[in-house]
Protein backbone atom coordinates (compact mmCIF):
# COMPACT_ATOMS: atom_id res chain seq x y z
CA UNK A 1 0.00 0.00 0.00
CA UNK A 2 2.77 2.40 0.97
CA UNK A 3 4.56 1.63 -2.24
CA UNK A 4 1.68 2.59 -4.52
CA UNK A 5 0.39 5.49 -2.45
CA UNK A 6 2.33 8.14 -4.42
CA UNK A 7 1.10 6.65 -7.70
CA UNK A 8 -2.48 6.67 -6.41
CA UNK A 9 -2.06 10.32 -5.43
CA UNK A 10 -0.81 11.19 -8.91
CA UNK A 11 -3.66 9.23 -10.47
CA UNK A 12 -6.23 11.06 -8.37
CA UNK A 13 -4.60 14.40 -9.06
CA UNK A 14 -4.83 14.04 -12.85
CA UNK A 15 -8.62 14.45 -13.36
CA UNK A 16 -8.75 16.91 -10.48
CA UNK A 17 -6.09 19.05 -12.11
CA UNK A 18 -7.97 19.07 -15.43
CA UNK A 19 -11.23 19.90 -13.61
CA UNK A 20 -9.63 22.70 -11.62
CA UNK A 21 -8.00 24.30 -14.68
CA UNK A 22 -11.33 24.07 -16.46
CA UNK A 23 -13.07 25.75 -13.53
CA UNK A 24 -10.42 28.44 -13.16
CA UNK A 25 -10.53 29.57 -16.77
CA UNK A 26 -14.04 28.75 -17.95
CA UNK A 27 -16.41 28.59 -14.97
CA UNK A 28 -15.16 31.26 -12.62
CA UNK A 29 -16.24 34.82 -13.48
CA UNK A 30 -13.55 37.41 -14.15
CA UNK A 31 -12.76 39.24 -10.96
CA UNK A 32 -14.01 42.82 -11.19
CA UNK A 33 -11.03 44.75 -9.81
CA UNK A 34 -8.05 42.63 -10.82
CA UNK A 35 -9.29 41.17 -14.08
CA UNK A 36 -7.85 38.07 -15.72
CA UNK A 37 -4.62 38.35 -13.76
CA UNK A 38 -6.54 37.21 -10.71
CA UNK A 39 -6.49 33.65 -12.12
CA UNK A 40 -2.91 33.41 -10.93
CA UNK A 41 -4.31 33.43 -7.41
CA UNK A 42 -5.55 29.85 -7.87
CA UNK A 43 -2.00 28.62 -8.47
CA UNK A 44 -0.04 31.09 -6.41
CA UNK A 45 -1.73 30.61 -3.04
CA UNK A 46 -1.78 26.76 -3.02
CA UNK A 47 1.91 26.74 -3.93
CA UNK A 48 2.61 29.19 -1.12
CA UNK A 49 0.83 26.99 1.39
CA UNK A 50 2.57 23.87 0.08
CA UNK A 51 5.93 25.59 0.29
CA UNK A 52 5.25 26.41 3.94
CA UNK A 53 4.11 22.84 4.59
CA UNK A 54 7.28 21.45 3.03
CA UNK A 55 9.42 23.83 5.08
CA UNK A 56 7.72 22.68 8.27
CA UNK A 57 8.14 19.01 7.30
CA UNK A 58 11.81 19.68 6.54
CA UNK A 59 12.37 21.37 9.91
CA UNK A 60 10.60 18.66 11.90
CA UNK A 61 12.32 15.84 9.99
CA UNK A 62 15.67 17.54 10.53
CA UNK A 63 14.98 17.62 14.26
CA UNK A 64 14.16 13.91 14.24
CA UNK A 65 17.25 13.21 12.13
CA UNK A 66 19.46 14.99 14.68
CA UNK A 67 17.84 13.52 17.74
CA UNK A 68 17.28 9.93 16.62
CA UNK A 69 20.05 9.76 14.01
CA UNK A 70 17.59 8.35 11.53
CA UNK A 71 18.63 8.12 7.90
CA UNK A 72 14.97 7.99 6.83
CA UNK A 73 14.30 11.32 8.53
CA UNK A 74 17.32 12.71 6.69
CA UNK A 75 15.83 11.54 3.40
CA UNK A 76 12.42 13.03 4.30
CA UNK A 77 14.05 16.36 5.14
CA UNK A 78 15.97 16.45 1.85
CA UNK A 79 12.91 15.52 -0.23
CA UNK A 80 10.80 18.13 1.57
CA UNK A 81 13.46 20.78 1.01
CA UNK A 82 13.67 19.97 -2.70
CA UNK A 83 9.89 20.25 -3.12
CA UNK A 84 9.83 23.36 -0.97
CA UNK A 85 12.44 24.81 -3.31
CA UNK A 86 10.31 24.06 -6.39
CA UNK A 87 7.00 25.27 -4.93
CA UNK A 88 8.74 28.31 -3.45
CA UNK A 89 10.16 29.12 -6.87
CA UNK A 90 6.63 28.87 -8.26
CA UNK A 91 5.35 31.27 -5.63
CA UNK A 92 8.16 33.72 -6.25
CA UNK A 93 7.62 33.65 -10.03
CA UNK A 94 3.81 33.90 -10.04
CA UNK A 95 3.63 36.46 -7.23
CA UNK A 96 5.32 39.34 -9.04
CA UNK A 97 3.31 38.66 -12.24
CA UNK A 98 0.08 38.93 -10.28
CA UNK A 99 1.43 41.88 -8.33
CA UNK A 100 2.45 43.88 -11.38
CA UNK A 101 -0.97 43.34 -12.97
CA UNK A 102 -2.95 44.35 -9.89
CA UNK A 103 -0.76 46.67 -7.83
CA UNK A 104 1.20 48.04 -10.74
CA UNK A 105 4.45 46.87 -9.16
CA UNK A 106 5.89 43.36 -9.04
CA UNK A 107 7.36 43.76 -5.57
CA UNK A 108 5.96 45.77 -2.70
CA UNK A 109 8.19 44.43 0.04
CA UNK A 110 5.16 43.20 1.94
CA UNK A 111 5.93 40.98 4.94
CA UNK A 112 4.61 37.84 3.29
CA UNK A 113 6.67 38.40 0.12
CA UNK A 114 9.87 39.02 2.01
CA UNK A 115 9.28 36.07 4.34
CA UNK A 116 8.68 33.73 1.41
CA UNK A 117 11.75 35.00 -0.42
CA UNK A 118 13.98 34.59 2.65
CA UNK A 119 12.52 31.17 3.43
CA UNK A 120 13.33 30.16 -0.13
CA UNK A 121 16.92 31.35 0.37
CA UNK A 122 17.21 29.23 3.52
CA UNK A 123 15.90 26.19 1.61
CA UNK A 124 18.43 26.86 -1.16
CA UNK A 125 21.23 27.16 1.42
CA UNK A 126 20.08 23.87 2.97
CA UNK A 127 20.22 22.12 -0.40
CA UNK A 128 23.66 23.58 -1.16
CA UNK A 129 24.96 22.36 2.18
CA UNK A 130 23.45 18.89 1.77
CA UNK A 131 24.92 18.51 -1.72
CA UNK A 132 28.27 20.27 -1.48
CA UNK A 133 29.05 20.22 2.24
CA UNK A 134 31.81 18.17 3.83
CA UNK A 135 31.22 14.57 4.81
CA UNK A 136 29.76 15.26 8.23
CA UNK A 137 27.62 18.19 7.12
CA UNK A 138 24.32 16.33 7.37
CA UNK A 139 24.03 17.30 11.01
CA UNK A 140 24.96 20.89 10.24
CA UNK A 141 22.36 21.00 7.47
CA UNK A 142 19.78 19.68 9.90
CA UNK A 143 20.62 22.50 12.31
CA UNK A 144 20.21 24.91 9.40
CA UNK A 145 16.76 23.51 8.63
CA UNK A 146 15.71 23.83 12.28
CA UNK A 147 16.92 27.42 12.40
CA UNK A 148 15.16 28.11 9.12
CA UNK A 149 11.85 26.79 10.46
CA UNK A 150 12.19 28.83 13.65
CA UNK A 151 13.09 31.88 11.61
CA UNK A 152 9.89 31.96 9.54
CA UNK A 153 7.58 33.60 12.11
CA UNK A 154 10.38 35.87 13.30
CA UNK A 155 11.09 37.12 9.79
CA UNK A 156 7.39 37.73 9.24
CA UNK A 157 7.19 39.78 12.38
CA UNK A 158 10.47 41.58 11.70
CA UNK A 159 9.34 42.64 8.23
CA UNK A 160 6.06 43.94 9.65
CA UNK A 161 8.10 45.94 12.12
CA UNK A 162 10.33 47.16 9.31
CA UNK A 163 7.25 48.13 7.29
CA UNK A 164 5.86 50.31 10.08
CA UNK A 165 8.79 52.54 9.19
CA UNK A 166 7.84 52.34 5.49
CA UNK A 167 4.05 52.46 5.26
CA UNK A 168 2.83 50.82 2.09
CA UNK A 169 -0.58 50.32 0.52
CA UNK A 170 -0.37 46.80 -0.92
CA UNK A 171 -3.47 45.12 0.53
CA UNK A 172 -5.04 42.03 -0.93
CA UNK A 173 -8.80 42.42 -1.47
CA UNK A 174 -10.97 39.99 0.48
CA UNK A 175 -12.25 37.11 -1.56
CA UNK A 176 -15.90 36.53 -2.57
CA UNK A 177 -17.15 33.07 -1.51
CA UNK A 178 -17.76 31.68 -5.03
CA UNK A 179 -14.02 31.98 -5.73
CA UNK A 180 -13.31 29.54 -2.91
CA UNK A 181 -15.30 26.84 -4.69
CA UNK A 182 -12.77 27.03 -7.50
CA UNK A 183 -9.86 27.37 -5.13
CA UNK A 184 -10.27 24.12 -3.17
CA UNK A 185 -10.12 21.58 -6.06
CA UNK A 186 -6.98 23.30 -7.33
CA UNK A 187 -5.39 23.22 -3.91
CA UNK A 188 -6.18 19.53 -3.47
CA UNK A 189 -4.85 18.69 -6.95
CA UNK A 190 -1.58 20.53 -6.38
CA UNK A 191 -1.25 19.12 -2.87
CA UNK A 192 -1.72 15.58 -4.17
CA UNK A 193 0.94 16.15 -6.85
CA UNK A 194 3.39 17.62 -4.36
CA UNK A 195 2.84 14.89 -1.79
CA UNK A 196 3.18 12.20 -4.45
CA UNK A 197 6.48 13.66 -5.66
CA UNK A 198 7.57 14.02 -2.05
CA UNK A 199 6.80 10.36 -1.39
CA UNK A 200 8.59 9.23 -4.54
CA UNK A 201 11.66 11.29 -3.82
CA UNK A 202 11.83 10.14 -0.20
CA UNK A 203 11.60 6.52 -1.28
CA UNK A 204 14.27 7.11 -3.91
CA UNK A 205 16.64 8.61 -1.34
CA UNK A 206 16.00 5.78 1.13
CA UNK A 207 16.60 3.24 -1.63
CA UNK A 208 19.84 4.98 -2.61
CA UNK A 209 21.04 4.63 0.96
CA UNK A 210 19.99 0.99 1.07
CA UNK A 211 21.79 0.42 -2.20
CA UNK A 212 24.96 1.87 -0.66
CA UNK A 213 24.54 -0.52 2.26
CA UNK A 214 24.04 -3.39 -0.15
CA UNK A 215 27.24 -2.49 -2.00
CA UNK A 216 29.01 -2.53 1.32
CA UNK A 217 27.68 -6.00 2.12
CA UNK A 218 28.69 -7.22 -1.32
CA UNK A 219 32.20 -5.88 -0.75
CA UNK A 220 32.24 -7.68 2.56
CA UNK A 221 31.61 -11.03 0.99
CA UNK A 222 33.94 -10.74 -1.96
Amino acid sequence: MRKILPDLCLLAAMPLLVYSVHRVFLETPIERQMGTAFKIFFFHVPMGWLCMLMAVICGVAAGVQLRRRSAVAGAVALAAAELGFVTGLGVLLTGPIWGSATWGTPWTGDARQVTTALLWLVIAAYLLLRHYGPRSSDRLAAALAIFGAVNVPIIYYAVKLWKTMHPSTGVVASLPPEMWATFWPGLIALALCTLALFGLRTRQLVLADELDAAWVRLDDNL
Binding site: R135, D212, A213, W215, V216, D219, D220
Partner: peptide, 10 residues
Protein backbone atom coordinates in the same frame (compact mmCIF):
# COMPACT_ATOMS: atom_id res chain seq x y z
CA UNK B 1 30.69 3.30 10.42
CA UNK B 2 30.13 4.22 6.84
CA UNK B 3 29.79 7.38 4.80
CA UNK B 4 27.65 6.59 1.77
CA UNK B 5 29.42 3.83 -0.09
CA UNK B 6 32.67 4.38 1.75
CA UNK B 7 32.89 1.91 4.58
CA UNK B 8 35.25 2.90 7.33
CA UNK B 9 34.43 0.27 9.92
CA UNK B 10 32.51 -2.90 9.11
Amino acid sequence: QRFGRQVVLR
